[in-house]
Design a protein around this nucleic acid. Sequence first.
DNA 1: ACGTTTTTGTGATTTTAATCACATTTAAAA
DNA 2: TTTTAAATGTGATTAAAATCACAAAAACGT
Lengths: 214, 214
Amino acid sequence: MLVNKKIISRFSQYREVLLKFQEMGLSKIFSNVLGDAVGVTSAQVRKDFSLHGISGNKRGGYQIEDLLHELRSILGKDKVHHVVVVGIGNLGRALIQYTGFDKEGIQIVAGFDIDPAKVNKRNRIPVYHLDELNKYVCENQIQIGVLAVPDAAAQSVCNIMVDSDIKGILNFAQIRLIAPEDVVINSVFLQMELENVIYFVNAMENKCTRCRSS
Amino acid sequence: MLVNKKIISRFSQYREVLLKFQEMGLSKIFSNVLGDAVGVTSAQVRKDFSLHGISGNKRGGYQIEDLLHELRSILGKDKVHHVVVVGIGNLGRALIQYTGFDKEGIQIVAGFDIDPAKVNKRNRIPVYHLDELNKYVCENQIQIGVLAVPDAAAQSVCNIMVDSDIKGILNFAQIRLIAPEDVVINSVFLQMELENVIYFVNAMENKCTRCRSS
DNA sequence: ACGTTTTTGTGATTTTAATCACATTTAAAA
DNA sequence: TTTTAAATGTGATTAAAATCACAAAAACGT
């Protein structure tokens, strides 16, 4: 693949920051300002843009509107993307209740769960039984799904999603999912992220103790 | 810092997989098996261990118990870590309701919110008003906090957490938090992760279309 | 109009991370 | 025992990502 995950993450972040700057009434921005806001160097910003054929004005910086336009098309923001959430536990419910995605062109359109008690078709975002996933996904041309079921069920539910022709999965289960090459899987391991924080807090503490005693 | 975020993430994953293998009754494991399970090469596994002074037996692989023992101490799993969640919205509530962290030595002990209506001290995990954070954190020697408030409030709540002497923050707000050097911040940008999936699904689609037409 | 300053754009360089490949060791088989 | 096959451990190599550094362009002040 020409681009990697990391650069796309930065693009998402650039976009986020640019929207805020635009909201504040600014119309142009310099690479160093954007870099600071996102936590990268100005050279990184310029290189990212340059590699994607986005150019600014020497001494004039970049037009925010132009950048947003380019980023919109790079990130596929020119159309609304419909997403389903599979697994309506604590996390799944939180995700379908969160309303912040909408304004970013991401629309969560339905939830699915294996537990009939969770089914509720009258919600703002309806929740269906998992058995209906296949039909729903076909009929509504859904490509993206969030997987938020317990680890033990994750792989089999993933298989169901893949069979239903979902092409991209954001996975919250703490396992490495196996799926065909053409299915994009991005995993968020929340426990691992917490462990990471804990590790580095410990590491810092040890370092400081040593500093003090030396 | 000697080690970076990525290697620690791998260690977390190794540990996770090893626990599962151990549960299945296995007592030794080879680098290639562990690598496959986590999605890295066998050389990567061996190098990771080697760099941390963990060694196995030539031709005999690694003793799972030994590995887990080492990883436990590297990852600070030898004691239980108490964590507070600040911001009891959809996501914060999901996190304090999730019971899976406990068995991993991570214990969410309290929630905090600025909204008095969210306060409930009789829950399994009590929710206090944000004003009580400082006192609670001091009295209970909390070092780690999860930040799950709206973007607009994130920086100021972060400041409160830092003032309360929290040393590590897992941040779910879509902004780059500013904090002193000695405070560890790890951000999970859920929207960005979803956008990433969407981007690569689009990219694949375009690639395939091109393939078909050529 | 002209020089000065500032910012971009990018080739060269450095740094970092991953992979290779093989000598070494050792468990198991013959 | 002796041989054979299979893993580890690690220096060397490669690949990837980030940074540097500076020429080129253009806005601004005078």
